[in-house]
Amino acid sequence: MSRTKSITHLKVLVNPANCVGCRSCELACAVAHSASGDLYAMAQAGERPGYRITIEPYDNQPIPVHCAHCENAACQAACPTGAIYREEANGPVLFVAERCIGCRMCLHACPFGVITLHPLGAGVLKCDQCIERLEQGREPACTEGCPTGALLFGDEDDVAKAKRQQSAQRLLNMPAEGR
């Protein structure tokens, strides 16, 4: 069985209104992708694992921008070596550095700009939705690291349902003349 099979329905969900711009998600991403997995050790070793989610300032608002793991992933289509691939039809879009030739076609193809150059200039950084943590039953580092709930790891259907409920409530509370 594919290692991604059981989690394909779960996604990193963004609620920008809750983002305070603390950048804890970026930090958590870097720690999760570091050699030691330890904040202090990483900082002291001068390791630069980079982060795969960005708090993008826009109009003075911090907005988390992250990989959508698109159904028709442009990065995957653009990659000539299969370094960007899927294990499962709806699973996360993964990246394997060994196959990457550094052509950066993925970076140009991504409509969200979430694929970035590796800080050490070797290939690119691409979100793997913390596949290894998911296998251990943990959630991605960025969502776990978010202290305000701006990032959540959940079921898109549940979120859509919750939004429909809010929508319904708004309609119910609408003044009569507005109906």
Partner: peptide, 11 residues
């Protein structure tokens, strides 16, 4: 309730 604590502050 304070978890996760801010890495910038810790460092």
């Amino acid at each position: 309730a304070q978890q996760p604590q801010c890495g910038f502050g810790k460092l």
